[in-house]
Every structure is written in C-alpha cells, then in structure tokens.
Simulated assay, not measured.
Amino acid sequence: MASLTTKELTFIEDELRAEEIIAKTINWCATLCDDEQLKNTLEQLAQFHQENILDLSKYFNRSQDIQ
C-alpha cells in the first residue's frame, strides 16, 4: 500500500469530523421525534454514519502506521 500524503490524510481527518457531526446531529434529531417510524429511520441513519467513522478511523490508523 502506498503512503498517503499529508493532504490526503487531512482530507480523511476532515471526513471523520464531518461524519461525527452528522451522526451526532441525526441522533439528536431522533431524540426529538414522536413518530417511532421516523425515529427508527433516523437512528439507523446515525448508525450508518457511526460505522463510517469506524471504517475511516481504521483506515486512517493503518495509514499512519505505514508512513
């Protein structure tokens, strides 16, 4: 695997932060919902973004070990 540039690592960090904000915002919205179906949908969507965070974190950590 080729080393990532500093710019590429910065993009990954930015995406991690964006995914964290999205997941937290969607979870917050879910807590405000009275409609159970909408609440469940929002919780699933937040979970999807939390999984993206884990995937990106794994890739980011592995990339830093390589450099």
Rank of each mutant, 00 (worst) to 15 (best):
M1H: 07
M1L: 10
M1T: 06
A2V: 09
L4A: 08
L4S: 02
L4F: 14
T6S: 12
K7P: 00
E8N: 03
L9N: 01
L9Y: 01
L9W: 01
F11Y: 10
I12L: 15
E13F: 08
D14R: 07
L16D: 02
R17G: 09
A18C: 04
E19Y: 04
E20L: 13
E20T: 05
I21V: 13
I21R: 13
A23P: 02
T25F: 14
T25W: 05
C29P: 00
T31W: 04
L32N: 07
C33W: 01
C33K: 11
D34W: 07
D34T: 11
D34I: 07
Q37R: 11
L38R: 05
L38W: 02
N40G: 06
T41M: 13
L42Y: 03
E43Y: 03
Q44I: 04
Q44C: 09
Q44H: 09
F48N: 10
F48K: 11
H49F: 11
Q50S: 13
Q50Y: 04
E51L: 13
E51R: 12
E51D: 12
N52E: 10
N52W: 01
D55V: 09
D55W: 04
S57R: 13
F60Y: 15
N61D: 15
S63I: 03
Q64H: 09
Q67R: 15
